[in-house]
Design a protein around this nucleic acid. Structure first.
Length: 627
DNA sequence: GTAGGGTTAG
């Protein structure tokens, strides 16, 4: 790269040119022309040369060392303001290599590049900071944290935050509001936000309007309306005046309980404070009514929104339609949809998605399919949610060709399938008796980090068994078993039957051994005789002991089977002797017919040894009888 | 000279 060659250029002792002289000349040079005869008076300052450079690399080589840190930072600004982000990066890199950067360079650069750099690059940038004063500078730290939060890396951010504190950062209110805001989109965000509130108070910081705004938003997004109410009142009692955002968060929190009385009172309070409800406030109020099941009141409010010009996009319609659909009022939802269409309300496809799903839920599959096709022909905006709605409709209506087309489209548009996508497909493949395809989709789902529902897997395992796909069934079983959750006991028995049917006896033994207590008597018996009959001969004694140890009474039939296996393979005589020696200690004695069988073949094993072992069994038996 | 928040829909 050109940049690296820069450092090879050696300069004399760095010197500072007078900044006053450069700024005095800077205002007049724009008119300078190449025809001038007074180059010394009209030449651009190094800073301006750099800012207007056509070849940044060579300009840095020639004038870079003449520039002050302040000039360089101003130039970063200049490039960022003119959207020359390649120049920003290139200059910053040069500044890093030439060790000409300070706290401002970092905090500006991070701000400029927040949208361009990914989380790991940002993290590396911070970790590689060599300037001591920048590393624990609260502005620099806040910039980095804010950038990571915006990229949705909450856990990474919190980890970095702890490291920063350990390395000397003294967090301020900005730090905390940045982090609390990050809790809005995170699951379990409320307790995490609470911890941060506690920490800022422990650090003798006082909550300000911004912090209140952030915590109210967290409460709202977590359905904590009582807590939201608490913070709102606390804020007021501190003499702070909530603004429209504070009000709207509390209102949004009320939608969790659907308490329209509280919501109406809040709007009144807001108006008495001189704040006029805006479009968002009224849409949120609609959400409260809808969640409270007050559909008549909702329709009236929607009409009011329309009359105020607040219903130009589909959002309020979607709020109402979704509520109706979830209350199983599919027909009423469709009426709203039709009105919306008639009025040519702007739509991004949310409305279609809601109604397609509503139709699927109501088992109106033909209607769902039709609407999905309408969407395909009239919209060119796809995301995973609308794709899922359409897939669901096509699957339920049995439109295989459309299902495949939709999947191709997803692939083409690089829309990654999510949990719902996999679920829809797996259920569909199962319904169509395409169990191997369902199996492969389930494994794919698992490899993408989604946990398939146990019930679905369990049913799939059963069907795979029916189709003699025992090893696929076993893979699925193992996937469930090793996914850190407890699974139903019946599944162990189910897979055991499948493995026995598929003659996967070694796998069956593993399942039996690990779950003996969940296996019924008849299934144990079935497993035992299957194994004695054709399981790996080297494991026969182990299986015997396992059966015995889990309380199963081994019958003569099993001993007979084991013995005849051993007689068929005389090289395994040690195993037979071991079994015969083990038996009496556990209260087992061979019956006469098996005993005769062994004696008949004793030349294969050594007559003397066999006789001794058998007579020991006798003695033991007699002793037991006399007891 | 640098850093922060907040509303509504599938």
């Amino acid at each position: 790269m050109e940049i690296s060659s820069l450092s090879a250029v050696s300069f004399g002792m760095p010197f500072r040119h007078s900044s006053s002289s450069s700024s005095s000349s800077s205002s007049s040079i724009s008119a300078s022309s190449s025809t001038t005869h007074f180059p010394s008076r009209t030449r651009k300052s190094p800073k301006l040369q750099l800012q207007h450079a056509s070849d940044l690399t060579s300009t840095l080589t020639s004038v870079g060392q003449l520039l002050t840190m302040k000039d360089l930072n101003a130039t970063l600004h200049h490039f960022a303001n003119s959207n020359k982000f390649n120049h920003v990066s290139q200059l910053f890199l040069w500044m890093q290599e030439n060790k000409k950067l300070d706290v401002y360079s970092y905090s500006h650069y991070i701000k400029f590049m927040a949208n361009k750099l990914d989380a790991s690059t940002m993290l590396k940038l911070y970790n590689d900071i060599q300037v001591e004063s920048a590393k624990d500078n609260v502005y620099v730290c806040n910039s980095v944290l804010s950038c990571l939060i915006k990229k949705g890396k909450f856990d990474t951010t919190m980890k970095l935050f702890r490291q920063m504190k350990h390395d000397g950062l003294v967090p301020d209110l900005v730090t905390y509001s940045t982090l609390i805001a990050g809790c809005v989109k995170v699951k379990d965000g409320y307790p995490k936000a609470l911890e941060l509130i506690q920490e800022l108070q422990d650090n003798k910081l006082r909550m300000d309007d911004v912090i209140y705004g952030a915590i109210l938003a967290v409460c709202a997004s977590n359905g904590k309306w009582e807590e939201a109410e608490y913070y709102f009142n606390q804020m007021k009692s501190e003499g702070r005046s909530p603004n429209v955002y504070h009000y709207s968060s509390l209102l949004n929190a009320y939608s969790a309980c659907g308490d329209f009385t509280k919501a109406d009172a809040l709007i009144q309070d807001m108006e008495s404070e001189g704040l006029a409800p805006n479009k968002v406030i009224l849409t949120t109020l609609l959400k409260v009514y809808v969640r409270g099941g007050l559909f008549e009141k909702s329709r009236e409010l929607l009409a009011k929104l329309e009359s105020l010009g607040y219903a130009e996009d589909e959002m309020p319609y979607c709020v109402l339609m979704d509520g109706l659909a979830k209350a199983r009022q599919t027909h009423e939802a469709k009426i709203i949809f039709d009105e919306m269409m008639k009025k040519h309300v702007m739509s991004d496809g949310y409305a279609h998605s809601i109604i397609i799903s509503a139709f699927c839920r109501a088992k109106l599959f033909q209607e769902a399919k039709q609407l999905a096709k309408d969407f395909q022909t009239t919209f060119d905006k796809y995301d995973v949610v609308i794709m899922n709605s359409m897939l669901c409709a096509f699957c339920r209506a049995g439109e295989m060709e459309s299902v495949m087309e939709t999947l191709r489209k997803m692939d083409e548009l690089a829309i990654s399938p999510d949990y719902n996508t996999f679920n829809i497909l797996i259920k569909y493949f199962c319904r169509k008796n395409m169990y191997l395809l369902a199996y492969r989709t389930t494994m794919d789902m698992h490899s993408k980090g989604y946990q398939p529902a146990e019930e679905l897997c369990s049913s799939l395992i059963y069907h795979l068994g029916q189709e003699n796909a025992s090893s696929e069934a076993f893979s699925l079983y193992n996937m469930l078993r090793y996914s850190k959750r407890t699974i139903g006991k019946a599944l162990h028995e189910k897979i055991l039957h499948i493995l026995l049917a598929g003659k996967l006896l070694k796998d069956a033994y593993v399942v039996f051994k690990d779950n003996a207590t969940s296996i019924s008597g008849p299934t144990t018996k079935k497993f035992a005789s299957a194994f004695m009959k054709s399981g790996n001969i080297n494991l026969i004694n182990d299986v015997m002991k396992t059966l015995h140890n889990c309380g199963y009474k081994i019958d003569q039939g099993l001993f007979e089977m084991a013995v005849s296996r051993y007689l068929g393979q005389p090289e395994k005589k040690d195993l037979l002797l071991h079994l015969l020696q083990w038996m009496p200690g556990q209260g087992y004695v061979i019956n006469p017919s098996t005993r005769n069988l062994i004696l008949k073949n004793s030349h294969l094993f050594g007559r003397q040894l066999i006789a001794e072992v058998l007579s020991k069994q006798r003695v033991k038996l007699n002793a037991q009888k006399s007891n």
